[in-house]
Design a protein around this nucleic acid. Structure first.
Lengths: 139, 139
DNA sequence: TCCGGATATTAGACAAAGTCCAGATTGCCG
DNA sequence: CGGCAATCTGGACTTTGTCTAATATCCGGA
């Protein structure tokens, strides 16, 4: 993806290009995710968006993240049973999860190869393949 | 792993061989998991164990599953943000998750090959590699 | 400009999964 | 039997996320 500055104005364009009506709150949430290129949980998004004074409700944060997900603007990463992370990087890639710190980072899919997967059951389509490497600091 | 009958007596041996004191409740929980070779959530385990009349408390089910996990008797599978599954199959394998039904099944690791993973960050050891194929019934 | 409907947002009640704790039980050993 | 350690328990609590009914905002047309 071409490099760009993640200004709030650009966010509006990004949202529109994904068929999302760019409202105030949606722009803030998109900005939170895209300006840091990080994996954030709903909680973290809420905290960021509401730093100064409360601006966006919990319901809206959840609604918006779900909407972004449906529209393919972000990806969901399920590595920790206690919370879901949202990933602004939608290009194919995998994840490295540091179990003890909770840090989550990307592994480019380019050079990784997965082969020998059995055929899918009839009438099924793949929705996605998640590869998660769980690591821990050496004792 | 050699085939065997998952009787309650054998469960006691299995627990002992994993350095777990085989109590009544632990045997029941192990039996629930190993007699059906399925992925069960804590809820499901509790339901199975307490079919006739309530016998085992929620706290014990959670404590016991966590203990089994630490002792390497079962594996945790995180595919659904709303619940964790416990997998009595600890041999290396991957998972196929049917998103719409919630069904989870095994993919033998034998013929699957993953290559080209980047080197780990210094001082880190791999705790496990989870490969999850998410599928959905074709529309 | 004003109106009306569609779209968004909100607070707060609610639900589900999981944790925690202090007290009761159990099992074992002398 | 008495006592100690390990285990189990009910129930309160926390966290993440969902739902709902009411309100606010936006926008196009008269």
């Amino acid at each position: 993806m071409a490099r760009m500055h993640y200004t709030r104005d650009n966010m509006a364009g990004l949202l529109r290009s994904h068929d999302i009506n760019p409202t105030h709150q949606r722009i803030e949430i998109a900005h939170a995710l895209f300006s840091r290129q990080e994996h954030l949980s709903a909680d973290q998004v809420m905290a960021i968006v509401n730093t100064r004074h409360s601006e966006t409700s919990k319901a809206t944060v959840y609604n918006t993240l779900k909407l972004f997900l449906e529209k393919g603007l972000v990806r969901e990463v399920i590595v920790d049973p206690s919370k879901v992370f949202f990933d602004p990087n939608t290009s194919p890639h995998h994840h490295l999860y540091e179990v003890d710190t909770g840090r989550l980072s990307d592994i480019d899919a380019e050079q990784v190869q997965i082969s020998g997967l059995p055929p899918l059951p009839a009438g099924m389509v793949t929705e996605g393949i998640d590869l998660i490497v769980r690591v821990r600091r050496k004792a």
